[in-house]
Design a protein around this nucleic acid. Structure first.
Lengths: 240, 240
DNA sequence: GCAACGCTTTGGTATAGACCAGAATTCCTG
DNA sequence: CAGGAATTCTGGTCTATACCAAAGCGTTGC
């Protein structure tokens, strides 16, 4: 045995994981407090916290600021290729979805944004921010940018519910083509606050560029998801 | 000011991030040791480590077992929709790619696997494991399953380089349709070892089901990526 | 020239203790 | 009994210290 017989933090991980798997701890339930776990398994609080953070990375548990650690609910299946709305597909999966608009304003495209979206520098964009979640738990924040020149009067439409619907029905511009970019990242202060997560919390960042049938950009969207709340599904045909 | 003026760990984060952004620390370079940083910023090693872990979550730095912390190289763009091979598209991005086969064997489909892949229980599958990376840094491990019944003699082909090519040229079964499932997760012991990362390291898990033009499954693939090495890109048309 | 050994440095793991901020609860008072 | 105040409980941050295992390096001896 060159290795230490056990790593204490892993011992704690295994203990808690067992409790969850054998359903002694159910989805949404609070775990025993850090101090109680430490005492129970004869370890220090630092070690216990390390174990909890491992389980958090695995997505098995999450914390709510100064309230405790909880068993993570199932992930939301998200398929950006389906022409459906958040409220619909989340409800379809048995959750109670919600969606709140945080802000709506005009911004001007700077150089970087202009080239990214292939529009003119200085063009006006409608910026929409919102949070969405399920069962009272916020799961992602998103910022949507809409080029006003291509979508005249878009600012005055009700965009709180479904931007896609407005684009399709009011502008006759259904989004036909989507470019996704997905990376694993971490929440900055603002996003963390909205998602009630700690700063630096692991996140999945999704950038989405949507184009109409003519190939013109009609929507640019950046989403920051809690990493443990998302199962991304995509289906497509190979371009050869 | 109800809040503490500064969080020490964040102070360390900012200090290091600045060094990286102003290119005092370049891609691939080793950071000062934890003890040196602690002394320099008048903080404890525990706090310094917390800061380092935050930067790791952000994907800015990574550690190599007991050797130190290093500045993360750029992410690899991975587009599963392009009919290209790892070696090609990685080289195209200016990296030196490598690919090593870990194992190749036959396995029998259990109930779960059979229903997942829509094949018969007990059917024989060829299981291929390999690691791939760039510039001497392993970035993902994958396990490929190939149904032998649909691909007679597949076991005896050279699969070390490109499974896609073999499927296309030897079996006349180019993969036409792909179903992706992406979640953020963490590395188990085996994967961590191969990727030279700590157990529990944040990872991106990609499941890929590929079908031929007739809709028959020809390849099932599970990939575990270092979270900081991947930028996933997908392009597709909306199914309405 | 190089292999073997041993010291130094690095991160990895763990402990004990302290204080803070905010959430939840209890208790007390009008 | 309602509303506000005090208390308790929870995680959040930080310090100081200790020992271990492996990587890296330098020295020594052939």
């Amino acid at each position: 045995m060159t290795e230490r017989a056990v790593v204490k933090a892993v011992e704690v991980v295994v203990w808690l994981r067992t409790l969850i798997h054998e359903r002694t701890l159910l989805t949404g339930m609070r775990l025993p407090s850090e101090r109680v776990i430490s005492e129970q398994l004869q370890t220090s609080r630092v070690t216990t916290r390390e174990a909890l953070k491992m389980l958090e990375t695995q997505g098995l548990i999450y914390r709510s600021n100064r309230r405790g650690w909880f068993v993570t609910p199932p992930r939301i299946n998200y398929d950006p290729g389906r022409a459906m709305f958040f409220m619909e597909y989340v409800a379809e999966q048995g959750f109670k979805p919600f969606s709140h608009q945080i802000s709506k304003k005009r911004v001007l495209a700077d150089t970087a944004l202009a080239s990214l979206l292939s529009i003119e520098e200085g063009d006006s964009l409608v910026e929409l921010k919102r949070v969405r979640g399920a069962d009272n738990r916020p799961v992602y924040v998103e910022t949507i940018l809409l080029p006003e020149r291509r979508l005249p009067g878009i600012y005055d439409h009700d965009l709180a519910h479904s931007v896609t619907t407005v684009l399709k029905e009011e502008y006759n511009k259904p989004c036909m083509n989507v470019e996704l970019e997905v990376i694993s990242s971490s929440l900055d202060k603002d996003a963390a606050e909205v998602l009630q997560a700690p700063v630096g919390y692991t996140s999945v960042e999704i950038h989405r560029v949507s184009r109409d049938a003519q190939g013109a950009l009609v929507e640019y969207d950046v989403e920051h998801w809690r990493h443990d709340a998302l199962k991304l599904k995509v289906e497509f045909n190979i371009r050869s």
